[in-house]
Simulated assay, not measured.
Amino acid sequence: MFNASYFTAQSILTALWLMCFAAAVVIVESYFYQTVQLEGHLEPVRVLLEEKRPDVLVPVISIYSAVIIAILAFWFTKPFPAASTDSSRAIRRIIAIVCTILFNAYIIYLLSRGYFNGFNSVDTTLAQAVSAAKWLAFLVTPVNIYYFGSK
């Protein structure tokens, strides 16, 4: 059974995940090019040094890629039964969209918080964002998997 709105919603949700993933990578990457003037230093100092790139970028990529891979895998395998009514299908869609928006908005906020606090303790801010993403992904991923995996 082909339902155009169902596939459109899945496509939009997938695009949202991919755009937020790209935004997260761009935000983290941007910290490597920002400089701040510190007291006692004659020249501006980079917010994050190049050698920190794997420590900071890999966890963000790992979390988003795990969620996106799971979504794409369940989108094509469809192991769960179809919704019995259109209203239950709409509820699944709304829950998946709301969870996705809340997760990504919060993670993007946490990742970009360094810009709001004058680049103070960017390392700690990024570590908090990664920790929050791990715990929230544990809650959000099953919702999206169930939505994408329904026939």
Rank of each mutant, 00 (worst) to 15 (best):
S5Y: 14
Y6Q: 11
F7S: 07
S11T: 12
S11P: 02
S11W: 09
L16F: 13
L18H: 04
A22P: 02
A23G: 03
A23W: 09
V28L: 06
V28I: 03
V28R: 05
Y33L: 08
T35W: 00
V36E: 11
Q37I: 03
Q37R: 06
E39P: 01
P44T: 00
L48Y: 08
L48S: 09
K52Q: 10
D55I: 04
D55W: 04
V56L: 15
V58S: 04
I61Y: 03
I61S: 05
I61P: 00
I63N: 01
I63S: 01
A66H: 00
I68T: 03
I71Q: 08
L72P: 01
A73R: 07
A73E: 01
F76C: 10
F76S: 13
K78I: 07
P79L: 06
P79K: 11
F80R: 06
F80A: 02
A83H: 11
S84V: 09
T85Y: 08
D86E: 13
D86H: 04
S87G: 01
A90K: 09
R92K: 12
I94N: 13
A96H: 10
I97A: 14
I101P: 01
L102R: 03
L102K: 04
F103N: 06
A105P: 03
A105W: 05
Y106L: 11
Y106T: 10
I107S: 02
L110W: 03
S112D: 02
R113C: 02
G114N: 03
N117F: 12
N117P: 12
G118P: 09
N120E: 08
N120T: 06
V122Q: 08
V122I: 11
D123H: 07
D123L: 12
T124F: 13
T124P: 01
Q128C: 02
Q128H: 12
A129Y: 12
A129G: 02
V130Y: 08
V130F: 08
W135F: 15
L136H: 07
A137F: 13
L139W: 05
T141P: 00
